[in-house]
Structure formats: C-alpha cells, structure tokens
Write a protein that binds this DNA or RNA. Structure first.
Length: 392
DNA sequence: CTATGTCCCTGGACCACAAGAGTTG
DNA sequence: GCCAACTCTTGTGGTCCAGGGACAT
C-alpha cells in the first residue's frame, strides 16, 4: 500500500511532498500542485524507493534506486549489519523542486529521471509529457522558471557530507541552481557562492509583516512551524549530525541582513521550539551576523531528520521568502487563502495521528480499559470500546 | 498596575499485550 | 546463507492529572 499514490491510490507513488506529507504519482503531483500559487511552492522530491515513506535525498547510481537518509545510511554503511560493500556506491544528490515541472524539466532536474520505473510508466508519461509549461502562469521555459523562482530546484550538500560514509562518492547533479544553507565544510567552495545567489530574492524586511501576516501573533511570535511551512512552503531543518549549525552567511547573500531581525525577533517565540513532532528549531542572531538554524544535537542521526518531519535538506531549495513582486508582494487573496489553509491544516493536524501499525490500532480499538488504561484480559473493566459501555 | 483565584486547554503518563525487530543457534 | 526459536522493543487509545495561559476580581 505504501507504494501507491496517497491521492489516487492507483498509480505508484514517485514523488514526496513534505508540505502535504504525501507520496504522489506524477499525475497527481501535477494536479495537486497546480491548484494554486501556494501549492505550487510545495517542495517535492523523489520518494525513497526502499521504504516508500520518506523523501529521497540521494540516488544510488549503482543500484539505480533513490534513497532517504535512513535507507541510505542502512544500505551504504554505518548500519549495524556491518555491510560495507555499498559504501563505495556512487550516489547522486536528488534535487528538490517546486512549481509544475514538465517531464523534460524533471529530466533536467534529475538526469536519471527516465530510470525511475514509475516515471517510465506510459500512463504517467502521457500525463507528464502533455504538461505544458504554460499551464503554470508565468512560465516561459523551465530554465527561466528556475531562474525566476517559479520552478525551484534545490539540493543539500551539507547533509550529504554529514552522512557521507567514508569511501562513498557523491556526484553532484547537473545543478541548475542551488539555494539553501551550506555547512562550514563548504565555505571554501567559491563555486557554491556563485550558485547560491540570493540577490534574486528580495528579502527586504519592510514587507515582512504583510508577508507573514497572521502567521505572527501580536507579540511577533510565529504560531508555529506550520505557519512557515504552509504559507511559504518553507522547510527548516536543524544542524547536521555533528551539531553544526546551518547558517546562511550574510556575505554570501548580500540581502540576508534584512531577514535577520525578522527571524531573530519573530521566530524567537516558544512556538518554534515547542513543536512535538518536529525538531527544535531555533533562530538565533549570531555575533557574526548570520542567520542560524540550530537545534539537533550531536546525537542526531539520519533517522532524526526523518522522524521529525523536518527537511533533511537544509532550507531545502525553496527560497524561504517567495520573491515578492515590488508592486504586489503577495496578493491579498493569496495571502488570505494561505492563512486559511494554514489554519485549516493546523486544525486538522492537531487531531491527526499517524497510525503506523493498523493491526495494533485494531487491537487497541477493542481492548477493554479501566480509566483509560488497558487492563489484563479477563480483568474487570469500566470501558469496552466494542460496546461503548462501562461495566461498573 | 499588581496580586490572587478560577477556569480552561494542552500535553504527558499510564496501562496490557500483540506485532515487529533483533539476536542466537 | 537460510530458517526457526527466542528475546526484546514498540505502538496502540481513553482517561487522568499537572502545568501553564487567559481572564476576572
């Protein structure tokens, strides 16, 4: 079941949308994420072909399989199984994207795209192949879209280095554009800075209130991570396994200084730190004037990134702040719909509980209880879920 | 404006035990 | 390497309760 699209449940899932926490087939991905401007910003990547439940971050060239950090970790070294044969496998970073890419664009993003079995599915190929770039407003061609941000491709090098087993080889994808954070180990790489050009993104703080709007309460606190995620499709993850903070240095952006006060002030709220299901994320204004995301400790492992639901990709690819148009930074209708969607999602998520084992749930659903606690079989009980009655 | 009391909401703990995961021979 | 047997760990839901925020006095 985990192989199937969460939306249509007919096609095999190919991509994973973090914002929706859903695995989708290509056609549904297209349909769902072309619905409106907000959904188009959802960052998607391939779904792990091993566990089929997590977003892939790397593709093993040898095995021709996309893997999430956990499965990559298990399969390519560091696992308790002691398997080291896979550690020499060449792996290719799996980029994230947003927008409504065509099959050709996905081929550009993922050079191995046609290797993916489901992507080669004629039914899905028809859908993807028929995608017109013009179906997404403002699209001229994908390169242009990549450049102007409507189609965003991203990658995370830092995490790769964090989880890269000795002897393994990562082969960077033919990247079009990088955006996101970088680790200290990459600071020397000037080429990164060339790609990491945030000048294209207007991060001016003047409009932050308009942009963030209801995502902040009166004290300037964010309501929660969901707010960012929902409204911007932004995803934040913490430090790498070595406890290194991810940060965007001002020197590399030129525009980031406008962001820092907003983040350091607005995001300092406990709402950012109280989320149960996501890692503690803390924005801190560093002495060296950088935007810092810290939270995961040195004990964190690949699984932490997954379990917490946060992106394993630092800052992912999407620009945290969607490039606001000077004249109409964000249409009020879009904003209100974003806020509405955020509130709706928050409301839903509040009561949402992901059941991992249906069999256990089925059993728990019929177990007798005393004051809510399970009782031994045969013991007296005060609540029977089957009859919804109390025996005492 | 501050202190105190009350109400309400949120989240964690608790329970038994089958299923899943891991280990051993 | 494969399999069976065994041990250990995990997850499941309803209820209770402590803690904290909001509000009134």
């Amino acid at each position: 079941m985990g192989f199937m699209c969460d939306f249509c449940a007919e096609q095999r899932s190919v991509v994973y949308c973090r914002s929706d926490a859903a695995s989708l087939c290509l056609s549904c991905d297209r349909n769902v994420h072309s619905a409106n401007a907000l959904s188009r910003r959802h960052s998607r990547t391939l779904v792990c072909e091993r566990c089929n439940s997590q977003p892939a971050f790397v593709r093993c060239i040898e095995e021709k399989i996309s893997l999430c950090p956990n499965c990559d970790w298990k399969g390519h070294g560091g696992s308790s199984s002691g398997s080291t044969s896979g550690s020499t496998h060449k792996r290719q970073a799996v980029n994230c994207y947003s927008g409504c890419p065509s099959a050709a664009e996905l081929q550009t993003i993922w050079s191995f795209f046609l290797e993916i079995p489901s992507a080669g599915d004629p039914a899905q190929e028809v859908v993807m192949g028929s995608m017109s770039i013009n179906e997404c407003p403002g699209d001229d061609n994908h390169k242009e879209r990549i450049r102007d941000g409507s189609l965003i491709v991203s990658n995370d090098i830092k995490l790769h280095s964090a989880h890269e087993p000795a002897g393994s080889t990562y082969v960077p994808s033919p990247m079009v554009s990088f955006s996101g954070a970088k680790g200290p180990t990459l600071c020397e790489d000037d080429s990164f800075y060339e790609s990491f050009n945030m000048d294209e993104v207007d991060l001016s703080i003047e409009n932050y209130n308009e942009i963030f709007g209801d995502a902040f309460d009166s004290s300037g606190k964010l309501f929660g991570n969901d707010g960012i995620d929902d409204i911007f499709g932004m995803e934040i993850s913490g430090a790498d396994s070595n406890g290194q903070d991810a940060h965007v240095t001002e020197g590399s952006t030129g525009c980031a200084k406008g962001v820092q006060p907003a983040c350091s002030t607005a995001a300092s709220g406990d709402s950012m730190m109280s989320c149960k299901t996501e890692p503690t994320v803390c924005f801190a204004r560093q002495a060296h004037s950088s935007l810092s995301f810290s939270g995961l400790t040195g004990e964190s492992n690949a699984g932490d990134y997954q379990d917490c639901g946060a992106s394993s990709l630092l800052l992912m690819g999407e620009p945290p702040w969607y490039p606001p148009c000077p004249d109409s930074s964000l249409p009020s209708s879009s904003r209100s719909s974003a806020v509405m969607r955020y509130k709706e999602k928050k409301k839903t998520r509040k009561f949402e509980k992901k059941v991992r084992y249906a069999s256990r749930k089925a059993r728990a659903d019929v177990r007798k209880r005393v004051k809510g606690r399970f009782v031994k079989a045969g013991d007296a009980y005060d609540y029977d879920p089957l009859t919804h009655t109390r025996s005492c």
